[in-house]
Computed example of a mutant assay.
Amino acid sequence: MSEIDQFASSLLEEAKRFLEKATETSEPDAEKAYLHAALLLAFCSLEAHVNSVADEIAVRPTTPVHSRGVLLEKRVELKKGEFVLHSSPQISRLVDRILLLHRLGSKSNVDGGWRARLMAATELRNMLTHPKSVPTLSAALVKKAVESVIDTLDQLYLAVYKTRFPAAHRDLNSNLSF
């Protein structure tokens, strides 16, 4: 397992552990902090896993340059009659990168129920990262969000690697004990 894959996995384990801690505490401020940490770390893990898969797919010689641009979040430009990657960033939506990975991995546009669940989880995360009012999170909502991250990764691994996401069988059970 590569260093980035280990890091991405550790972020997911931390998210799951903070969710466990949120349900173990009776102190409202601690519960809120644990829920915030669980939600944000789950999305950090998702981004890290997607970046790792994207980096791997982008170096394949069969990956078109425009797809490499989206996967690596680099601008594509026309130089001397040829499309080339530019060093400047071109940020793409996370769900678009995931859908592209599905398409490149399975040669079809797989858009299962994971996408709707991920979009709901993203809205929850956005309420915390881009607040317009004070967000109210519950353990049940954060649990669904973390589950959606795991399901999204599982479906991505099935599309690209034809195997299950390694941590999917553990569901929300963290292997950490802090």
Rank of each mutant, 00 (worst) to 15 (best):
S138P: 10
R75W: 02
L94W: 03
A159E: 14
Q90E: 15
A8Q: 09
R17A: 06
S133H: 11
S87D: 13
R117L: 12
G81R: 03
L94C: 04
L46E: 11
F43L: 04
R103W: 14
K107C: 05
K32G: 04
A139F: 08
E27G: 00
V110M: 07
V53W: 00
E14W: 09
T25I: 02
D111I: 13
R164N: 12
I4G: 01
T129S: 14
I150V: 15
L100D: 09
D55Q: 12
H49N: 10
S92F: 10
V142M: 05
F165L: 04
L12R: 06
A22W: 07
F18Q: 08
E73F: 00
S67N: 12
L71V: 01
L39E: 06
G105Q: 09
K132P: 00
P166E: 05
E73G: 04
S9K: 08
I150D: 02
E24M: 04
I91K: 15
S174R: 05
A48P: 12
D55C: 08
E147V: 01
S9R: 09
S148W: 07
K80D: 15
L156V: 08
T136Q: 13
H36E: 12
S133C: 03
I150T: 05
V149C: 06
P131F: 03
A120G: 10
L176V: 09
E20Y: 01
Q90I: 00
G81H: 07
S92M: 03
H36M: 05
K107I: 01
R103F: 14
E14H: 12
E147D: 14
L158S: 10
L124M: 12
T63L: 03
V59E: 12
K107N: 13
G113W: 06
D96G: 03
R164E: 14
A8H: 05
A37E: 00
K144E: 15
E14Y: 12
D154N: 15
E82I: 08
L118Q: 06
A48W: 02
P64A: 05
L72A: 03
F165M: 04
H36S: 05
L71T: 02
L141C: 06
L158K: 14
G69T: 03
H36Y: 12
S10E: 15
S87K: 11
F178M: 06
L176A: 05
A22F: 02
T63F: 01
E73L: 00
Y34W: 07
S92I: 02
L137K: 03
P64V: 04
I4L: 12
P28K: 01
A168P: 13
G81A: 01
E24D: 09
E3Y: 10
V70P: 00
A37F: 03
I4N: 12
K21T: 00
K144I: 04
L141W: 08
V76F: 02
T23M: 05
K132M: 12
E13K: 03
L104A: 03
Y161S: 11
Q6W: 08
A139L: 02
A168G: 07
